[in-house]
């Protein structure tokens, strides 16, 4: 009797194995590592001013009741160029965007902003990627929606495109 049952065991195991393979094929590994900080308060950080005409960034800047976008970018990052026009348009619609430039330098940033435009109200230089790691960000560009109490409510990974704007605006609207 038990021998009969045992015969089914390999089939069951193979079935489980194939189910896993099938699921794995259905959702291929997206290789995107989302931040674990979404829903939590923005951690303590400070990034010194990158440009003479804009202040730097600290976590204290985010607790004044106004929701903001926190954009992690870099002047050496090629895709970042593509999202600047979108960010500029959002800025015109009254969105305050704070930039944190990773592994960057003031001269390189100056060139980048002169060429592409400057959508940022504040730009901080993130030396040694400390702020980036505090946010749980794994690359550039990434954009965080931070509410008025300084809580991260959303993480957008990759370039912000026109299609993403309504969603981001909606989140900013709700995130008082």
């Amino acid at each position: 009797m038990s021998r009969k049952l045992l015969l089914w065991l390999p089939f069951a195991l193979v079935f489980v194995l194939f189910a896993v393979f099938w699921l794995g094929l259905k959702n291929p590994d997206d290789r995107i590592i989302a931040s674990n900080m979404v829903g939590k308060p923005l951690p303590e950080f400070s990034a010194r001013a990158a440009m003479p005409d804009r202040p730097g960034v600290t976590s204290a800047d985010f607790t004044d009741g106004k929701p903001r976008l926190l954009n992690v970018f870099a002047s050496w990052c090629v895709p970042c160029v593509r999202e600047v026009p979108v960010l500029l348009r959002m800025q015109q619609q009254g969105v305050e965007i704070v930039g944190v430039a990773v592994h960057d330098s003031s001269p390189a940033l100056a060139t980048f902003l002169a060429q592409n435009g400057n959508p940022y109200d504040r730009i901080g230089l993130d030396e040694g990627g400390r702020a980036q790691i505090e946010f749980g960000s794994s690359g550039v560009p990434e954009t965080f929606v931070v509410d008025g109490k300084g809580r991260i409510v959303h993480q957008h990974i990759g370039v912000v495109t026109e299609q993403d704007v309504p969603q981001l605006l909606g989140m900013l609207g709700k995130a008082q």
Binding site: S35, N36, M37, I133, E134, S138
Partner: peptide, 9 residues
């Protein structure tokens, strides 16, 4: 680090 990036890290 897990608090930043999740268990994956």
């Amino acid at each position: 680090l897990i608090s930043k990036y999740g268990d994956w890290v």
